[in-house]
Design a protein around this nucleic acid. Structure first.
Lengths: 361, 361
DNA sequence: CTGAAAGCGCTTACAG
DNA sequence: CTGAAAGCGCTTACAG
């Protein structure tokens, strides 16, 4: 009976994921026995009321139908296994229960973790998620934004969005979009992520607590990204605690994947002044890249150089015990994303949500 | 002009991902200036022809419109930035350009890699992919199958599908479904994956070539899964090459994730007879689990025990150089999946596609 | 409390 | 070569 709005999520409207057995209805038209689609019309015919009435009941616009009618309709819905068709509904309402997630490369375990948790949260709330891989390319992002708009999606989840014309338009239009992991490149907007600056500061404290007074840092490319904030927070805290800024060695490298950036940047850093005793890598993947260079250099990690990452990849425990990583609870991001979407849908104001990261041991 | 079928993919029908600038159309109705949706009706009105004609032109049902009309309509489409609405289309055709991928836990890098490559291939062909995380649960799989059917999806990509009632019905109905990585648990059907048995055999040859004449194997749970086939192929080949079957030690363990299975199974194996000199782990994650036990046991890998995995995770090169892994080219799976879908759509017969795995060094 | 009608955006016989 | 009409499945004023 989950079709009835009374039994469905509070935001009204049936749920797409209704259980319901297959409709047993068959027709003998022309002697051929075949499964018949169960539509509102079927239910209406079967109960002798109008489609309007069935629709209202299904959608919980009640107080507007007699108890007797509701019961009759409910029975028929149950018996026929009726489920409201999401496409018909989307067309009419110009709004669907589909949410689009636009993310660059799922290859990154962090992205995958975000996708997983968001998908689960949306699903539990009766939404279905379309996943679009933008490869960090603005045109692709715009193509998808466009295509998703045509699908009447209920909202957009932008993981590490890049600045683009379509994004600008979507925001200008007031479309519900929540940014994850990387802030809105155009400023403002609903956001879910950790406090990157604070995470960087924590890494600084950790280094100093280990007696490493001249740690270095490996950064990704120099955009407004979250990783840049981590590096900034790291440096700021070190400076605040008395480390001369000029003695904080930094390196970054161009490159496609974080892991390659890590390797290349470590090479640059080390080439310029040898291995530091402590090295913050602004993501686990960057740390993996740096690790490889350390192995090639016959370094023993973490004895010779303390590697600190950010992410807390689940694999670390198994194959990268040498890495101290600030854990980001990606598995909880989905819930927060949904929260933000709901605020946007209800027209309420949204604030940035800073999910607390976990402390280093 | 990509909207016109003549310029679109061969399967006719406009593409959803049409570029096209925002429609400049505005209306002065009631003095309010606002963006107007550009529909078929708009184009028809603008050109003075009927919607039928515009529709036919958009869909390349040509030879049925004068060149002059086509030109006029094409111009209007271009000028207004018209894109066929996928929802209206789906409702009418009872078929969409959406393909559903149902997969258990994207946490597994192999699954993520499959999702990435399939998404890219579908996108290039003008489809959009909905990702459904089934967590290996049959009811969830069925819920999704149901929901996706209601969306009029064009097809189903089942990654490591489990046996379920809904799957049975979908196949019975003749829905286009292609199985990836794990064969259809109900038998038959379009499949994309490696030849698991051959991969296992290759691992056996590798071990013997290394002078390891009594290798052991770590398996996942004992279902009809692809990993079981790898283990079987391994054992068969060893036996064929003279290793007494009774001397091939095997272990498996229950558990949620492969990585935990690997750790637990290794513990069982080692507990029962010490470390073997060579150990096939039927997936990289299992190898990671085994590795951890090896580290705890102060073993030096691969010197003391040769670990062989299957997957070829991209991270291995960086942080698991101790692992020899048979690489599965997941990045090419997407293309094959599309191939299979096209066969199914055209009603042609499908055969299993065995993507060649890469040889061990 | 209920129903007839219009319409979301599209396609497709059917008739001309 | 072209158009009027019906209809995919639904919702929502509007009228009663």
């Amino acid at each position: 009976m989950a079709v009835l709005a009374g039994f469905a999520p509070a935001d009204g409207g049936g749920r797409w994921e209704v259980g319901g057995r297959m409709a047993p209805g068959t027709t003998a038209k022309a002697g051929k026995l075949r499964q018949e689609a169960v539509s509102l019309a079927t239910v209406a015919r079967e109960t002798g009321v109008s489609m309007s009435t069935v629709s209202r009941i299904v959608n919980g616009k009640s107080g507007r139908a007699s108890a007797a009618t509701v019961a009759r309709v409910a029975e028929a819905i149950e018996r026929l296994g009726y489920r409201p068709n999401p496409v018909g509904r989307a067309l009419r309402r110009r709004a669907s229960r589909v949410v689009a997630m636009l993310a660059p490369n799922l290859d990154n375990p962090a992205m995958a973790a975000i996708a997983v948790s968001t998908e689960a949260a949306l699903r539990a709330a009766g939404y279905v998620m379309i996943l679009c891989d933008t490869h960090d390319r603005p045109e692709l992002q715009d193509d998808y934004l466009q295509a998703m708009r045509d699908q009447f999606v209920a909202g957009y989840v932008m993981v590490s969005a890049v600045r683009s014309r379509g994004l600008e338009q979507a925001l200008g239009r007031g479309d519900p979009v929540v940014f994850v992991a990387r802030r809105n490149p155009l400023g403002g907007g609903a956001y879910v992520g950790i406090d990157n600056r604070a995470a960087g500061a924590d890494a600084a404290d950790f280094m100093l607590a280990q007696g490493i007074d001249r740690p270095a840092v490996l950064m990704a490319a120099q955009n407004i990204s979250s990783t840049a904030e981590r590096a900034a927070g790291f440096v700021e805290r070190l400076v605040a605690r008395g480390v001369p800024e000029s003695e904080i060695r930094r390196a970054s490298a161009p490159g496609l994947s974080h892991i390659e950036i890590g390797y290349a940047a470590a090479r640059i850093l080390v080439g310029a002044g040898g291995w530091p005793r402590g090295l913050l890598c602004v993501s686990d993947l960057i740390a993996y890249g740096a690790y490889r260079l350390a192995v090639e250099s016959r370094l023993e990690i973490p004895r010779d150089c303390r590697l600190v990452g950010v992410d807390g990849n689940a694999l670390n425990r198994w194959i990268a015990p040498w890495l101290s990583s600030i854990r980001i609870p990606y598995e909880s991001f989905g819930g927060h994303v949904l929260e933000q979407l709901r605020l946007l849908w209800s027209g309420a104001a949204t604030a940035e949500i800073h999910v607390p990261h976990e402390a280093l041991p």
